[in-house]
Each structure stands twice: as C-alpha cells, then as structure tokens.
Write a protein that binds this DNA or RNA. Structure first.
Length: 275
DNA sequence: TTCCCGTCCA
DNA sequence: TGGACGGGAA
C-alpha cells in the first residue's frame, strides 16, 4: 500500500497535475452548475444537502432541498420534528433511513457538541449516517478545509485523467486528490471536480462502474418498505391487518417487523402509524 | 430494463 | 467483504 502510493504519485508528472487542474477549473468557470446548496456555507444546510445527495442524483435532491430547508430551517427544528413530517419531506428521495439518521445526527450535535458543529473528520464519522465521503464533503463545503472529497464521479475524473487503474482504492487515490486542492479553494475545487465528473460521457463512466452494485428493485423488500411508508404517510393510522392486506410481498410480516425495529413505525391500541 | 448514487451491519 | 437499503428517469 505504501509503496503503491509512492509509485502512483511519482508516475504523475507535475505537468500532468497542473494541466488537469487547469482544465477542470476552466470547465467549471464555463459550465459550473448553480446548485442551491452552493449559495451557502451554513453547516446545517450543507449537512442536509449531503445526506440527500448520498446515493441520489442532484436533480432529485434539488427538488427536495428547498422545501426541507424551508420547513426545517435549523438544527432546533430538525431535532424536534416528528417522524411523519420528516418522512413527508423526504418522500421521493429514497433510502428513508437517511432521514432518521440525519435527525439522529442533528440530535447528537445539539446535545453532545452543544450545537457547535464538529469540524473534524473523526468526530463527524462517529455521527449516524456520516461516512468517509460525507465527512469530507462537509469539511470541504461548509468549512473550506483542504480535505480530499472522493465520490464515484470524482474518482472517475482522477482515474480517467491520470490513466490510473480501476483497482486503486479511494484511500490510495486520496494522496493524489489531496495534492490537487488549490490553496484556500477547497470548496470551489470540489464543486469543479463534481461538475466535471458529472459531465463525463456515459462511455467513460462505464469504464469505472460503481463500487457497490444494486439488486433488483421491482418486487424487492425495498419496494415494499417504501410502499408501506407511503401508505402510512397518507392514511395516518390503520390496523396491521388492513395495512398488510395492501401488500403483496411474501415477506411482508418480516418487513413490517423490521420497519418497527428501525423505529419507522409504531403500534398502539392495534393501530399502526409512523412513529 | 438498466442507470444512478454512500452508509451500515453481520 | 458482501448484502440491504429507493425510486424516478433514460
């Protein structure tokens, strides 16, 4: 690993780094996207946007971001929000656990950090729903810290521009990514990288497939879960029998139990509702 | 039908 | 380390 890093970096001429850097910055200057969460460095807003952007296209996050921020404008409101409204604001984004984790993370920040937003990757990664990527993204976009942010698109840019083999890990890649960040311009630079990466052709993207693969959605438990939550969003409360009658999945009992265990739903007086 | 996107947990 | 976790658009 160590030797590999060094080999990787020494293979890259300084000129290559400079050339690629210039190209990406020029691209951003001409074609950079004007996204709602780029108008702010409010850590709360950045936190919300980054949770939304996990496994979710920009176009879809845009549609939900404004409304979410409007209804839940700060940590205090997010910490207090009830699950039904939270899930309503999230609905359509997918991966609903992210919404619960976002609220849980906000609660930890308010309680344990006294509302002072953690500005350290290790502290951020201890929060629910925040992993390697999101911690780096928050530090770069909210605090302009010179940390390498590597999502799948940025990974593609680096691999492709430098002709690096797809077997290289993000950890190894981070040594190069780190060196490319212009002094004092981490947020701008990573916006540029992301826009450049998003604009890569489908052919190039196919050369660097996602690190994780998805099982089918049609007929899946995931689909049934989403459906159950949407029913409860609409009907407020109904009996378990009524609810499960509307579901055709053969594992619906298990799925129901799991949603309960994850605190999406609760049962009181024989009525099921969003928790 | 395939594509697009990180985090968590066993 | 591999599987679970959404849902709209192409």
């Amino acid at each position: 690993m160590k030797t590999r890093e060094i080999t990787l970096i020494s293979d890259l001429e300084k000129n290559d780094l400079r050339r690629v850097k210039r190209k990406i910055l020029r691209f951003y200057h001409s074609f950079g996207r004007d996204l709602p969460w780029r108008k702010t460095d409010n850590p709360y807003h950045i936190l919300v946007s980054e949770f939304m952007l996990q496994q979710t296209q920009v176009s879809r996050a845009i549609e939900h971001y404004e409304q979410f921020i409007k209804k839940l404008p700060d940590f205090e409101s997010l910490v207090k929000v009830r699950t039904p409204l939270l899930l309503k604001l999230w609905s359509g984004l997918g991966y609903n656990s992210r919404a619960l984790r976002l609220r849980a993370a906000a609660r930890v920040i308010v309680k344990n950090h006294g509302g002072k937003f953690p500005e350290d990757a290790d502290m951020l990664k201890k929060l629910p729903g925040i992993g390697e990527y999101t911690s780096a993204a928050i530090l770069a976009f909210a605090f302009n810290k010179p940390v390498p942010v590597i999502d799948i698109n940025i990974r593609r840019v680096l691999l492709h521009e430098f002709g690096i083999d797809n077997s290289v890990s993000n950890e190894e890649l981070s040594f190069i990514a780190q060196r490319m960040i212009p002094r004092g311009k981490s947020a701008l630079w990573h916006n540029a990288l992301m826009d450049y990466g998003a604009a890569l052709s489908a052919e190039i993207k196919k050369l660097y497939p996602p690190l994780t693969k998805q099982s089918k959605f049609r007929g899946s438990r995931r689909e049934a879960r989403g459906y159950i939550l949407r029913i409860l969003l609409k009907k407020k409360a109904l009996s378990k029998q009524e609810l499960l009658q509307m579901i055709s999945h053969r594992e619906k009992e298990k799925i129901f139990a799991q949603l309960k265990a994850e605190s999406f739903i609760s049962v009181k007086n024989g009525l099921v509702r969003l928790k």
